[in-house]
C-alpha cells in the first residue's frame, strides 16, 4: 500500500513540475514567399524639407515635426522631413534638387551660395534680432576664463561647415596665428551643437564652440547639460541660419512657401510652435547679412589649409 502511495505522490509531483513548463510557442514558418514590402520610393507631389543637423537629428525631429506638419496643412501637400548627418550632405541634396527646401546653417548657406547658388527664402528672428553668435563654452567648473586658456586642451567643433561651431573659433585661432592642430591637443567634430554641449558638460572635451541660438534655447528649455557649462567667449554677431530653397523649385511653390513662413507668427496656432522653437517670426533677409561670415571664412581659408 505504501508503495502505491509513494508512486501516486511522485506522479502528482511530476505532473506539477511539467505543468509549469508550458510556454505557448507560436508556430510559424520563416522561409516564405509572402514578405513585408520595403519603403516605397518618394512620390513627386511631396514637399521635402531638410533640416540641417544644427542640433542632433533626433531633437530636430522632435522640434521641427510640428512645424513641418503645419506647413503640410497649409500647403495642402505632404511634407517630408529629411535629415542628414552633416551640413555637406544636406547641401548636396539641395544642390541635386532632391529636396525642395531646407533649414541650413549659416556656414552651409555661404558654402552652398558660392558652390551652386543656394537660394535664400526667409530667416528666423530670434531674441529680437536676425543674428546669432558663437559661444566658446567650457565645463562650469573649468579654470579657463578665455579662449586663450584652452591651449593644449581637447576641443569640440560641430560640423566642418558650421559657422558658429567651426568657422568662428578657427577664425579666432587664425588671428592668434594658430590652427586647431597647433592650439589644441586634440579636437573632434560632433556634427551638432547639442552634442558639443553634451560633450563639454560631460567633460569629454575641455571646450567647444556652439551656436548661441542652440545654447540659449537649450538653457531655457532643458538646461540639463547647459547648466554644466559656462560661456567664456561670445563672438560678434553672424547672419542667422536661413531657410533656403533649391534653384529648381517652381516659383509658385516658392512664393507660397515664402508667404507661409512670413505669416507664420500671425497665425495663433503656429505662433505657439514658433514660441517653442524660440523663434519670434520669419523675415525676409538679404544675402548681405552673411557677409561677415563670408569674410571670416575667406580670411581663414587664406591662412589655413587644414580643415
Amino acid at each position: 500500500m505504501t508503495y502505491k502511495r509513494i508512486i501516486a505522490a511522485s506522479l502528482i509531483i511530476f505532473s506539477l513540475l511539467s505543468g509549469c513548463k508550458k510556454e505557448e510557442a507560436e508556430v510559424i514558418i520563416l522561409e516564405v514567399e509572402e514578405t513585408i514590402p520595403p519603403v516605397p520610393p518618394a512620390s513627386d507631389d511631396e514637399l521635402r524639407i531638410a533640416v540641417s543637423a544644427i542640433i542632433s537629428p533626433k531633437k530636430t525631429f522632435i522640434y521641427y515635426k510640428e512645424m513641418l506638419d503645419y506647413i503640410s496643412k497649409k500647403m495642402g501637400m505632404p511634407v517630408k522631413l529629411v535629415q542628414r548627418d552633416t551640413y555637406a550632405e544636406v547641401n548636396e541634396l539641395v544642390k541635386q534638387e532632391k529636396i525642395h527646401a531646407a533649414f541650413v546653417c549659416t556656414g552651409a548657406y555661404i558654402d552652398g551660395k558660392d558652390e551652386f547658388g543656394m537660394k535664400l527664402l526667409v530667416a528666423p528672428k530670434a531674441y529680437g534680432e536676425p543674428y546669432y553668435y558663437s559661444y566658446i563654452i567650457v565645463p562650469a567648473d573649468s579654470d579657463a576664463g578665455s579662449f586663450e586658456d584652452l591651449r593644449g586642451m581637447r576641443f569640440a567643433f560641430t560640423d566642418p561647415m558650421s559657422n558658429s561651431g567651426k568657422l568662428a573659433p578657427t577664425y579666432m585661432l587664425a588671428k592668434m596665428g594658430e590652427t586647431p592642430s597647433t592650439f589644441f591637443s586634440k579636437y573632434i567634430f560632433t556634427y551638432s551643437h547639442d552634442k558639443s554641449i553634451e560633450a563639454v558638460a560631460q567633460k569629454l572635451v575641455d571646450g567647444a564652440a556652439v551656436d548661441s541660438l542652440i545654447w540659449d534655447y537649450l538653457n531655457a528649455t532643458s538646461p540639463k547639460f547647459t547648466s554644466k557649462t559656462k560661456i567664456i567667449f561670445k563672438s560678434p554677431p553672424f547672419g542667422i541660419p536661413p531657410v533656403v530653397v533649391s534653384k529648381g523649385l517652381d516659383p509658385k511653390t516658392e512664393a507660397d512657401l515664402k508667404k507661409l513662413f512670413l505669416d507664420m507668427h500671425l497665425d495663433p496656432d503656429c505662433k505657439k510652435i514658433l514660441d517653442k522653437l524660440h523663434i519670434d517670426s520669419f523675415i525676409e533677409i538679404d544675402d548681405d547679412a552673411y557677409d561677415s561670415s563670408r569674410e571670416m571664412r575667406s580670411w581663414v581659408n587664406e591662412r589655413q589649409t587644414d580643415k
Partner: peptide
Amino acid sequence: GYVLVHTFNKGVPASL
C-alpha cells in the same frame, strides 16, 4: 508597416 531593414534571405515573412 514597411520594412526598413532585415536579415532574412528572402524577406520578412508577412505573418511574422
